[in-house]
């Protein structure tokens, strides 16, 4: 793995952890579950990156397997929490939403437990270990679900904004959340050739590192713009909405 990739992943871990704190503080103040769940999603993602990268620090190589396992568990827990967040926010009244959230979590738990039972603690053997795919499916499903719900909500919120029933910033936040889902799904897709190459040749290729870093950078950029938008970006969104042609009745 390239040195720049290690650094990018460490910074990603620090970013997610920092992003979790205001949400968890908000949850402590409001007592509401969505902010608590999203805070845990970011905290667990942050911890997973830190667990995965710590063994590459000088003198930490002996901790590779236990820390990689902790990183794997943290990633799985984060994606399960993401599924429950999506269900709670977008599909709280549907049975299929409940099934998808619990189903994703079950696949992740089953995949990790069965892998460990076969001696695959780090989850780096997709060719030899079929249970890798259960875990993988359980983790990519919430990411794809996030993107579908984000884009769907963006479309309807944009319509509502024309009638003064939605905040343009929030409508844009849904779009960004959809892109975050795509970026997360992207990391899961890159993981397949990356892990297969590692299983076959014992190394991670530069292109896979670069692709992974690109998806991670896109993910954290979207989290930043969605939940901590700088004033300049907010002004740009609001001006874009004002500049768009107004339709009194788009029917």
């Amino acid at each position: 793995m390239e040195d720049s990739a290690y650094l990018a992943q460490l910074l990603t871990g620090v970013f997610y952890t920092a992003a979790a704190l205001p949400l968890l503080r908000l949850a402590a103040r409001t007592g509401q579950h969505p902010e608590r769940l999203l805070g845990w999603v970011f905290l667990l993602l942050g911890l997973s990156y830190l667990f995965y990268q710590t063994p590459f620090l000088p003198g930490m190589a002996s901790l590779m397997t236990p820390l990689s396992f902790l990183g794997r568990v943290a990633t799985g827990a984060a994606m399960a929490a993401l599924a429950f967040f999506t269900r709670l926010v977008f599909r709280s009244q549907t049975r299929w939403g409940r099934t998808l959230a619990y189903g994703s979590a079950a696949l992740i738990v089953l995949g990790i437990c069965a892998s460990v039972a076969r001696g695959d603690w780090e989850g780096l053997t997709p060719l030899a270990n079929p249970f890798f795919w259960l875990e993988w499916a359980g983790e990519i499903a919430p990411a794809l679900w996030v993107s579908v719900e984000g884009f769907r909500q963006h479309r309807s919120a944009t319509k509502r904004a024309r009638f003064g029933l939605a905040d343009p910033i929030v409508a844009n936040r849904f779009f960004i959340w959809g892109v975050f889902g795509i970026a997360q799904a992207g990391t899961m897709l890159v993981l397949i050739p990356m892990n297969i190459e590692y299983e076959l040749h014992g190394t991670f290729s530069t292109w896979a590192d670069s692709a992974m870093s690109a998806c991670e950078t896109l993910s954290i950029a979207m989290v930043w713009l969605a939940f901590f938008p700088p004033a300049m970006y907010r002004r740009w969104v609001e001006q874009s909405v004002r500049a768009a042609p107004q339709e009194a009745n788009p029917s």
């Binding site: 509401q32 999203l38 909500q153 910033i169 939940f227």
Partner: peptide, 11 residues
């Protein structure tokens, strides 16, 4: 609804 939640989650 989702909009109220997402409004609250953003700074």
């Amino acid at each position: 609804d989702a909009e109220k939640i997402f409004r609250r989650l953003g700074r």
